[in-house]
Design a protein around this nucleic acid. Sequence first.
DNA 1: TGCACGATGAAC
DNA 2: TTCATCGTGCAC
Length: 184
Amino acid sequence: MSAALERGFYDRATVEVARAMLGTHLVHAGSTGERVGRIVETEAYIGPQDQASHSRRGVTPRTRIMFGPPGHAYIYLIYGRYHCMNVVTEAAGHGAAVLIRALEPVSNLDGRTNGPGLLCLAMDLDRRLNGEDLTGERLFLRAPPLPGRISIARGPRIGVDYAGAWARRHLRFYLRGNPFVSKG
DNA sequence: TGCACGATGAAC
DNA sequence: TTCATCGTGCAC
């Protein structure tokens, strides 16, 4: 019994998932205890047509997980030193995911969590968990114990200037006014 | 003179 | 992506 959000949560339009993830808890149940952070910032990468998405060049060894079934972790190494954690969305073969950009610490998190690389460090997430099933017991999302009203703001995604018009689309979502949202 | 902030480059 | 460094410009 892990109380993980079920697969259906991920099996729908990526933008919808990106918004629904805000306020939920990301849980990594590792050997050192349960690390938990509240998701306060996400970015939607909606498919191969999205020029900012890794899936734009189709299935490769790296993007294989992205094209797999929804509700799995896509974790990759960026710039040789940081990891980024995404959740796969929509039906298998679609090639979409949501990047988790910032967390508000809830329990057992050391260090900063206001950026995709930093939060992976604090949550102890790396490529060993690439492909992990998020409906399992090791790594998953769960509903917060005290769901409250939230105000969602949106804007352009960070660090995707190469993607032309896609870089300007408002596919980044965050909790308005939350101090743990990344600076970019 | 010194601080804050933006631009820049390096890390693999 | 993140950090350290360097430069500009403003304030004191």
